[in-house]
Amino acid sequence: MTSLQEWHLWMSAQLAAVTDQPAQESRWLMAHSLGLRPVELLVNAHESLGHAEKDRLQNLLDERLRGVPLAYCLGEWSFYGLDLEVNAAVLIPRPDSELLIHLALAEADAGNAQRILDLGTGSGALALALAVAQPQARVFAVERSPEALAVARRNGERLGAKVEWLEGDWFAPLDPALRFDRIVSNPPYLASADPHLPELQHEPLAALVAGPSGLECLESIIQGAAARLHPGGQILLEHGWEQGTAVGSLLLEQGFQQVQTHVDIAGRERVTTARSPDHA
């Protein structure tokens, strides 16, 4: 094999073992490895590849065939229209999480410089999507993993979005006087014995698993949130598709009002929202 076209056909055949979009993934991997736009792969289909280019392609293909997620092979992924750097230190942003953004923006006051907090920001996806959509807002993002926070900071610099990044556990690194109009979070919510964990082996375990029940992180956030929200402030939490009732109960126990669970693009319960008491 020497030409781009030959490599594309051969890689597509190999990738059929790990994806239902082998031709598309082949184009993405080739474009990334060779520094070309996908259209250039077509225009230059009969051009020959050098030894170094073939080695880079083979190494990338080998990674993908070992089960490394496509996003990690490419080093970036799209979320809410933003191209974000991702690596094994952060979760790959999922389309399901865009529901959090839709809900957070649905009641946003364009003329009001709101204060927003993203807990467990990972790659910075939620914080950056909100900061870009609401440039007048003051957005804070907390992450306990220094490696993940470094990725988030680079994404912020790349997008030119203003976010105040803080390293620590949930509310701990925040100024005690700070109060927020909105708190969003996609925290770890899998149980330690969740049967889906083997499928997620390449993603950071600490960003996936909350503990024996899967509710531990959600409970910690909910217990501290009311004291951090302005009266009537909103909390939006992503959770597992079977956790909506439990999360709603935890919110009600802490005095939250207007508790509502929303379904994702697959029709599964995915995000629960609530408001702090008017006189918190």
Rank of each mutant, 00 (worst) to 15 (best):
E253Q: 14
G233Y: 01
Q201S: 15
E25R: 05
V271C: 04
E98G: 00
L42W: 14
L103Y: 11
K54G: 12
E167F: 05
E147S: 15
A226S: 11
T121G: 00
L178C: 11
E167N: 08
G124H: 01
E253V: 10
L197W: 06
L200N: 03
E143S: 07
D194C: 12
H239I: 06
E85A: 14
L130H: 00
L208E: 05
P146G: 12
N44E: 13
N44P: 03
D62Q: 15
L252N: 14
S33R: 06
P277E: 08
L128M: 08
L149V: 07
A207G: 07
L237M: 02
S145R: 08
Q114M: 11
S213Q: 14
T272G: 09
L42E: 15
S12T: 13
A141M: 05
V139W: 00
H239R: 02
L100C: 02
E164W: 04
Q5N: 13
L236R: 04
A106L: 09
E269R: 12
G81A: 11
V43D: 12
H202T: 12
V86C: 09
Q243G: 02
G111E: 11
A131L: 01
H202N: 12
A274D: 06
H32L: 07
R182T: 13
Q201T: 13
A177Q: 11
A227G: 12
R64T: 08
